[in-house]
Design a binder for these strands. Structure first.
Lengths: 135, 135, 135, 135
DNA sequence: GTGGTCTAGACCACG
DNA sequence: GTGGTCTAGACCACC
């Protein structure tokens, strides 16, 4: 698995994991319908508790990025991914706003900020190759 | 004060307050050297706990956006504001990354995302007029 | 067989199967004494595990909806079907209660709920024709 | 609290709890905006684990029946309750269907079933008085 | 083997 | 004191 966790971070582990799985989906490293490791296997792999993995999986299932089957385990949403609906855009604006504000207060101009965003966006969709392709 | 808090939000109140003060600085609504209400006054005004206001002030002082004097009280940083140093940029990227990833996964393309960012940035620097100018 | 399984449902497969067999009995699509496919045949037909079919059959035998003979195989109860005894009614109330409560909380009025129930009941006893009559 | 749990039931404890809270909301025993016991208090009261109570609360928050605040704790949704949208109706039909089918197979006729449903619905909206009014 | 549930005890952020 | 997170270990249903 390509996931890298910072156990010291203030960002909850389950969220780091969920974020990186979403990023894997966005980049195509995780293809639609692709099976993910079982909660136990991933927990062992990452050296964290099974419940923490489970919380990440449940969160993503809830949002529609994953499906969880009785026996097949966990797979990437095989159908259409959740859309950028108004609820998501509102959340996105809410989260982006303080970041943009602080960037502005610190003297980052509009172009610098949008270019940073572009660079990020592109590095997500076209990630630098690294070790194994998926898991 | 122009601050509007959502007491039901999952975002901590002290962070909402700190964020909006930074936004006020970014927009110019809070000018360099300008005095801010005392912890007590602002807490009473907003109907929140003293400690919450204090935590927001201390956080902003720590980051260099405010100065706190025994006698003069709290004022907006009169000198140069904190710069967009590498530490800030790293934090910015870390926080922006999962947002960009989810936006991408949900089908928002690069242009839509950057335009959303631009719109936000401009609305911060040039906020719609509303009520009293500052406090 | 008219059975349709949703392998991704949170409802256990064996229960989906048992439920649809009961529905077949309720509708008359499965007549008293009628033979059912062998465990192996049905499992192959539905593409599921032997044990899953077996569990559904055993459950229904236990409740009195099926009979399982060594030689004749599995047949629909040829005699009187299990009655709506107090044990069943208690279970029915227990399962219905939270559904009625949530419907009420969500603003569905008594008439809407009972009409929904009637529609369901009728569609079960008089199902829309579809493909082969039974198996 | 008016909640009664059956620790031996096959129905998960957290679901029993969530169901009874919804029923409390439907009946008016839990009024909009009313505070609920803290997870710890309710867990102690019911003799179950705090995480089990938390799961029930989180589920209901997710569905829009509760709000969870940092300090105020948990309150009943003060605004409009979730509506009986198509997603709910689909779930309702899916859950009701096997119950109606078995009732039919066991010889309960349409009137008996709908009357049972009505009786339940009314007993929820107008529950028999019992001990303390709320918590 | 899988995920689902429950318990237990701990630490932390928040207010 | 509140909920949020994490860990740990256990049992169960399902397949």
């Amino acid at each position: 698995m390509f996931v890298e966790l910072d156990l010291q971070s203030e960002v909850p582990i389950y969220k780091q994991l969920a974020d990186q799985l979403i990023e894997g989906i966005a980049s195509g490293k995780l293809a639609a319908g692709q099976p993910l490791p079982s909660v136990r296997a991933l927990a062992a792999d990452l050296g964290i508790n099974l419940h923490t993995v489970n919380k990440a999986y449940q969160t993503l299932k809830q949002e529609g990025f994953l499906e969880i089957h009785r026996k097949k385990g966990v797979i990437v949403q095989p159908g259409p991914l959740p859309a950028a609906d108004e609820a998501f855009l509102a959340r996105l604006r809410r989260d982006l706003r303080p970041l943009a504000a602080e960037a502005s207060a610190r003297g980052l101009n509009e172009q610098e900020l949008t270019e940073l965003m572009q660079t990020l966006y592109r590095s997500i969709q076209n990630p630098p190759p690294e070790g194994g392709s998926s898991l």
